[in-house]
C-alpha cells in the first residue's frame, strides 16, 4: 500500500499547525475526513484539502511532498510510523514524539524535537535554536530518543535535556547543552560560546576542544576510558557518523561547577 502523500499545492500564506497529520491520528480516517481537517492558524484557517493534494492510503507512512518554513509541529506527539518531509519544516517538528521516525530533508525552525521522549528525528539540513529544548515555562527538555541534525544547529541545542542522544554534524551555536540534566549531545564541527552553560549532569561530546568555555568548567586532563570507543562505535553503527568522533583518549572538562558540576565535556585530542 502506498504511503499517504500530501503534495503541497502552493506556499501557504499562514503558519500551519500540522499536529493532526501524524500516523497515530490519521489511522483509520478517510481521505475526505483528512481533507476537512483544519490546519491553518489565521482567522480564516485553511483545511488540509485547501493546501495539499492527498494521495495514497497507508497512514503509517506519511510523506509531505514539498515543505515550507510555515509547517509547524510536523509529527508532534507521534508514537509510531514514519513521516518524511521532502522540504523544509517550521517550528516544533517532532515535539513530544514518543516513537516512530521523522526525516526532514530540508531545514527546520526552532524547537525541533522539543521534549521528545522516544523515536528518531533526522533533520538533513540545518535546525534552528533550542533543538530538543522545552518551550518557555517547561522544566524538562528532551527525555529520550535520537535526534540527528546533519547540518548546523542554532543556539541552546539540548537545553534542559535529560535523556537520549542528540548528534549534530556541522557545528552548533552558543550555549549547546545549556541547563542539561543528563543525556548526550555529540557535535562534529565548530561549537559556539559557553557550551554546557549551567549543565548539572550529562555529556557533551565534541570532535575538538571547545574555544569559549565558561570559567566554571574545570580541566580534568586526558582520559583513558572505554566509553569513548563504545560511543564512537554506536555513532558509526547507527549510521550517524562514518568516522570516530572522540577517539581513544579524549580530553575532559568537568562542570558546570556553577551548579551541580557532574556534567562533562569530552573532546577529541590530537596525537
Amino acid at each position: 500500500m502506498k504511503g499517504l502523500t500530501f503534495t503541497l499545492r502552493a506556499e501557504p500564506e499562514e503558519r500551519l499547525d500540522l499536529l493532526a497529520l501524524t500516523p497515530d491520528r490519521l489511522d483509520g480516517m478517510s481521505v475526505a475526513e483528512i481533507a476537512r481537517l483544519r490546519i491553518g492558524t489565521s482567522r480564516k484557517p485553511a483545511s488540509v484539502g485547501d493546501l495539499f493534494k492527498i494521495a495514497g492510503k497507508d497512514a503509517s507512512r506519511i510523506v509531505f511532498d514539498g515543505g515550507s518554513a510555515h509547517f509547524d509541529g510536523i509529527g508532534a506527539g507521534m508514537s509510531s510510523g514514519m513521516v518524511y518531509v521532502a522540504g523544509d519544516a517550521g517550528a516544533q517538528a517532532g515535539r513530544k514524539m514518543r516513537g516512530g521516525a521523522i526525516v526532514i530533508e530540508g531545514r527546520c525552525g526552532t524547537h525541533a524535537g522539543s521534549c521528545m521522549a522516544g523515536g528518531r528525528l533526522e533533520i538533513r539540513g540545518n535546525s534552528g535554536d533550542c533543538l530538543g529544548g522545552p518551550l518557555a515555562g517547561e522544566m524538562l527538555g528532551m527525555a529520550g530518543g535520537v535526534l540527528v541534525v546533519r547540518g548546523r544547529a542554532g543556539d541552546y541545542a539540548g537545553d534542559r535535556m535529560r535523556r537520549g542522544v542528540i548528534a549534530i554534524l556541522k557545528g552548533c551555536g552558543d550555549y549547546a547543552g545549556s541547563r542539561m540534566i543528563a543525556g548526550s549531545v555529540a557535535v562534529r564541527g565548530k561549537v559556539g560560546a559557553m557550551p554546557g552553560y549551567l549543565m548539572k549532569r550529562g555529556s557533551l561530546l565534541f570532535d575538538r576542544r571547545p574555544e569559549a568555555l565558561s570559567p566554571t568548567f574545570i580541566d580534568c586532563g586526558r582520559t583513558d576510558i572505554a566509553f569513548s570507543g563504545l560511543f564512537d562505535r554506536y555513532l558509526i553503527e547507527d549510521g550517524i557518523l562514518d568516522k570516530p568522533l572522540l577517539g581513544r583518549r579524549p580530553g575532559k572538562y568537568g562542570g558546570d561547577t556553577a551548579v551541580l558540576g557532574k556534567g562533562e565535556i569530552l573532546f577529541r585530542m590530537g596525537g
Binding site: 537520549g164 542522544v165 543528563a182 583513558d224 572505554a226 566509553f227 563504545l230 553503527e237 557532574k262 562533562e264
Partner: peptide
C-alpha cells in the same frame, strides 16, 4: 554519586570513575 548512567542504542550502561579512568 559520581557514577554516570548512559542510555543509547537501546542499551543502558554505567560509568564508574576509578583510579585508572572508568569502569564501564
Amino acid at each position: 554519586g559520581w557514577q554516570i548512567s548512559k542510555k543509547f542504542g537501546g542499551r543502558h550502561y554505567w560509568r564508574i570513575p576509578v583510579m585508572d579512568g572508568e569502569f564501564l
